[in-house]
Structures are given as C-alpha cells and as structure tokens.
Design a protein around this nucleic acid. Sequence first.
DNA 1: TATGAATGAGAATTCATTCAT
DNA 2: AATGAATGAATTCTCATTCAT
Lengths: 191, 191, 191, 191
Amino acid sequence: MDGTKQQRRGNTRQRIQDVALELFAEQGYEKTSLREIAERLEVTKAALYYHFKTKEEITVSIFTDLTKPIEDLIEWGRSQPQTLETKHELVRRYSQALSEAAPLFRFMQENQATVRELQIGDSFKDRMRSLRDIIIDPQAPLTDQVRCVSAIFTLHAGMFFLQDLEGDPEEKRQAVLEVAVDLVTQAHQGA
Amino acid sequence: MDGTKQQRRGNTRQRIQDVALELFAEQGYEKTSLREIAERLEVTKAALYYHFKTKEEITVSIFTDLTKPIEDLIEWGRSQPQTLETKHELVRRYSQALSEAAPLFRFMQENQATVRELQIGDSFKDRMRSLRDIIIDPQAPLTDQVRCVSAIFTLHAGMFFLQDLEGDPEEKRQAVLEVAVDLVTQAHQGA
Amino acid sequence: MDGTKQQRRGNTRQRIQDVALELFAEQGYEKTSLREIAERLEVTKAALYYHFKTKEEITVSIFTDLTKPIEDLIEWGRSQPQTLETKHELVRRYSQALSEAAPLFRFMQENQATVRELQIGDSFKDRMRSLRDIIIDPQAPLTDQVRCVSAIFTLHAGMFFLQDLEGDPEEKRQAVLEVAVDLVTQAHQGA
Amino acid sequence: MDGTKQQRRGNTRQRIQDVALELFAEQGYEKTSLREIAERLEVTKAALYYHFKTKEEITVSIFTDLTKPIEDLIEWGRSQPQTLETKHELVRRYSQALSEAAPLFRFMQENQATVRELQIGDSFKDRMRSLRDIIIDPQAPLTDQVRCVSAIFTLHAGMFFLQDLEGDPEEKRQAVLEVAVDLVTQAHQGA
DNA sequence: TATGAATGAGAATTCATTCAT
DNA sequence: AATGAATGAATTCTCATTCAT
C-alpha cells in the first residue's frame, strides 16, 4: 500500500511488459492469457489494450526493447576488422548480452514454434544470420562453420540446460563462454 | 491415392500419430487443434477419441513409440565400458537415432515450454540426464562437462539450425557429427 | 475367474439392469454414461445395444421389472373393501415393497426431474394416484387428504432421509411404518 | 418490452440467476445447458462466463442468495427456548420461506442426485440437520423423531406432490401446515 | 488512464447411437 | 451374443478482442 499505487503511475506499459515476459517464460506463450497478465498486475484486460493493440504487439515490444543491445552488438561487429580477436570479443559480449536478457531468451528458446509464427521470428532470424556471418568464414570447411554455429548455440543453451549441473551460475557462464571461444578458435585455425 | 479407403482399415491409430506429429512439428502443439488433425485424416474428432483418451495421450504415445531406439541406446551405453570409444559410438548412434526421428525432435525442440508441462517432459529429462551421465565424467573440470553437453546439444540443434546453411543434408549431418565427436574427445583429454 | 465367465452366460441382460440401477442410484441418471455401465460389466457399449434399443429402454425395463410387486399390490388394494384395516395393510405392504426395491426408489427419488421426462414418469404418477385413491377419501377434509399423501411420502423419504439418524435400519423402518399407519388412522377418524 | 435494452443494463447477473433457476426447475439441472440460458437471455454463452466462473457457480450463487431467509430462520430458532410454541412457529415460518423460494426448492427436490455432487449439497444437509435438531428431542422415542422429520418433509413435498389435488394453492398450503404442526405436537407429547 | 460488459470464434471432451463383421 | 470403429450433435469453458463510458 505504501507508494505502490503511486509508483504504478505512468509506468504501466513497462510493468505489462515485465509481467508478460515473466509469464511467457514461466508457462509458455500460448498458455499465458491476457487475463492472467492483467490479474497479476491487478488491472483489467481492457487496460492492456489501452497500451498495446494486440497480444502480439506486447510480445514484439518486449523483443524490440530487450534486443537493442544485440542489435548494437551486431552493428559493432560489422564495423570491426574480421580478426579472431574481434570474433572472440563478439562471443564474449554476446554471452553478456544473453545473460542480461535471460528471460527473453528463455522464452524464445522454449517457444520457437510460436516465435516462428510471430513477426519476431524473422527479425530474430535476421539477427542470427548477421551474427553468424560475422563469425563464420563462408570459405571455411563445413565442420568449421558448424563449430561456429555450435558456439553460438552453446551460449544459448548454456543458460537453461546447465541448470541441473552443480556449480555457481556465474562460474558456469564462464565455462560455457570458454567452450564457445574455443570453438571459434578452432574454426578459425582449421581453415 | 490407390485404394485409400481400404488401406485406412485398421491403421487409423497409426495414421493419427503420423498426422499429429506432422502438424505439431509444422505449427506447434498448442496451435494444432484436434479438429485439424481429424480434418486432415478425413475422420471426425470423435474418432480420435476412440483411439486416444486425450490430446496429451496422443502426444505421449508418439513420444513413447518414437523414442524406443533412444531408450535402447541408453541401455546399450550403460552396459559398455566407459571408454572414449564407447562415447564416440554413442554420439554416432545418437546422431543416427535423432535423424531417424527428426520430426519428433523438431517438435520437442520447438515446443519446449509445452513439453515441460506434459508428462513427456519428465521422461525426456530423465533420458537426457542418463545420456549425459554416460558421456560426462563428473570429476572433470566444468568446461569439459560443458563440452559434453554442448556436443549433445550440437547434435540436436544441428538438425534445424543448419537448414539455411548451403550443402547436402547428409553431408551436414556428418559435419555436425564430427564436431560433436571432437567435443567429446576434447572433454576426455582435457581431464 | 471361477465360474464367473460361465455364469455370465445368458444373463447379461439382467446384469446390465443391475449395474445400471446401481450406477443410476449412486451418481444420478444423467451422470451415468453407457460407457461406464459397459466398463463395469467388462463388455462393450455395443453389447448393451444388443440387449436394449436405447438408454431409456434400459431404464424402463428396470422400472417395469422392479415395480411389478407394487402393481400387484394396487390390484390387491382395489379388490379389497375400503376399510381402515385394508388401508393399514396396504401401507404395511407398500413399506415392504419399497424396502425390497430400495435402489430403484432411491434412483427415482433423487432423479425426479429426469424421471419426469422419461416414459416412466407417467406410469409412476398413475401408480401413485391409484395408491392415493385407495387410501384417500375424496370427501374427507383437505387436511386428512394431506395426511394420507404425507403417509405415503413419509414411507418414501424414510428410506433416505433417516440415514443419519442413529438406530438399526429395520427398527427405523418400523418406526416410519408406525408413523405412516398413524397418519392414515388419523385421516380416517378425522372425517 | 418497454425499454428492454435499457433495463437490461447492470442487472444481467441477476437475470442470469432468474432464468437459470427457471430452467433448472423446468427441465432439470443436467438437461439445462448454458446455451439455453444464454439464448433465453439473448446474450452469448461467453457473457455468462463474464458473470460466473462455472455453471456450478451460477447454481451456488442462486442457492446462497435464496436460502438466506432460511439461514436467518435457523439462527432465530436457535436463540429461542425449546418450547412447543417455538417449534410450531418454526414450522410456520419455514412453510412460508419454502413457498417464497418455491422454484429453488422444486429444483432441489427434483435434482437431489445432482445437488449431492454440487457444493450446495453439503450446505443444504447442514441446514436440514440444524433444523431437525431444533425440532427433535434426541431423547424422544424413534417414532417421535420420525414424526418430526416427516413434518419437515411434508412441508417440502407438499409444494409439489399436491399439485394434482384439487383446491386453491394457499388453502392447500394451510392444510399441509396444519398436518405438519400436528405431527410436531404429537411428537412433543410423546404420544 | 482506465473499466465493465460483452462478443465471436474456437478449444477439448463426452455422449448416445449405428453398423458391418 | 458381441465387438471394433466410427459419427453427429452437444457440452462446458477459454481466449483475444471491442467499445461505450
């Protein structure tokens, strides 16, 4: 009661995004209804429609807002010389970016089928392709290309599939990062 | 097309599974309604309920039937000595098994959020854990453990995320397999 | 296993009626599906249709078979002189008949709305009317007529609404009977 | 007919209850679908779900609203001395309350099997027990206890089972009441 | 900046019933 | 005397969305 209602003022849009993402990641996109989002926020469904035109728009807005760092990262990557050092740095920064937007990526990881149908799908694929094109050398043998894709993939999966491996989360992130960097290195040398 | 109606006799159950999996993989589990499945089969929804008690039961039955080879594989893995050779063979066979049940794994890959809620989720997690426990040495450094998880993951992802890389599918599968085998080798030596 | 299957021979019709009535009384008519009946009998639904044309027919047949004694009773009542003694005997015999077909009457008591829609409804109403006409003197004051209806009703209700009153069932039946007889007596004298 | 649409505003919830009870009493609970209720109200099924979470909730709400007077009556009964006069007054007031909520009690009378499964069942049984405990003397002989139950029961049944007895409804209610009062008196005197 | 009331479309599921074998 | 396979019609319920206020 103290401040809560006052704080709410003016940032409902933001709060909708937060709660929505939280629920999408928890239970999946299709299983999450606008009623649930509204209930958790203690507003009516209609209020959501004041801020967003559709359920999809909520999702797109979350995606757009949260992947800005990655877009920037790609921009940066493109402007750098294509050295191994650049690739390593890219992987490092990407790992960082992923862990900062973990819920979004968990959502995307676990709802690929849905994401594919949404507009997001394409933007995301584009981004992935751009990233890949920076790391991969298209002249390289297929295995080395796979290594690069695998590096990126390892980063993605790392966040969720290592949960039942013992160890401190940050330590695990470092281990994952190391493996990914390694894969990129091997791909680079292999040529 | 030839003798359609006659052929239908007695294999409806099987046909339901086929069509269901097809659609689940195509459009996602939640987006696929029993009406659609029934329509594509040219039977009524009620016919589906003659063969399966619920939508989930259809899914479980598909899973159970199609992952039998993997269960066998794990059985085999456990009975072997824990050598590098065994691990390699396991990875090879797993890659094979995956590509044989590709639609199922595509479905599971792309509908993780859903799968988590279904009974399947647990059986699958168990299986993944068993597999991991055969390949991983729990005494090994964290990075090496990650390498093994990454190997398995690379196999999984390989099937879907390499689709827009040019090259013949079988050739790509071989490349993926090579990278995975490599990761396991590194994990083994790393210790 | 011993004899069961053999015994089953030739009396399936009867067993269907038994199980159906059992379930109707337990869970209500509408809530009881033919599937359930068939399952409890370990036959298929189609088997029920070999013996009865519809669900309603099952019900009607149960009713007809089990209320034969009451029909006879009414026949008897009509042939007797309209003395108080006759009325008492009628009530006594009716009480007996009710307790012998308890499940049927429980079913009818608890599913009046349904029974009304079924054919049974009318036959039953007819029977009740006949009974009433034997006990009631249409010239008697309204209160005395009510007393007679109440007597019959007390018998009906007695079976189910006294269940949570302590005491031995047969003893309770006797008490109920006594009250009913009493009501009839009062109605008779009151005139 | 006059200003229909305007009048509708803001009392839909109430109208749903009315129509529902009407239909439940007319055709039985199970036979009454939400579609029918909605149609008779000229709204969509979904509108019902805006006001009530389930079909059962509609029923419970009707029950709760309409049996308030009886709850009050029991409260009153408990606060009075346990004299014969109190018992008589209780019976009189109960008769009145019943006739005021006639459709509800008709519904409950005729759908006992259903009511038993619903939450209502228990609340109702509790109420009946409370009522009984006020009227009955647990030390009294069984027959006298039966007389009391029979009195209450006569009131219940009176409403529906006397319909085909000739005479003015209010006159019949009085006759029923008289018989019930009489039964209580006899029980009290220990006849 | 929201809410209350409602809708239309569609979901999963259940049921009594049928019929060729 | 019974089964296996299927149907058509219905049911309860959920969802994203709309709009007057």
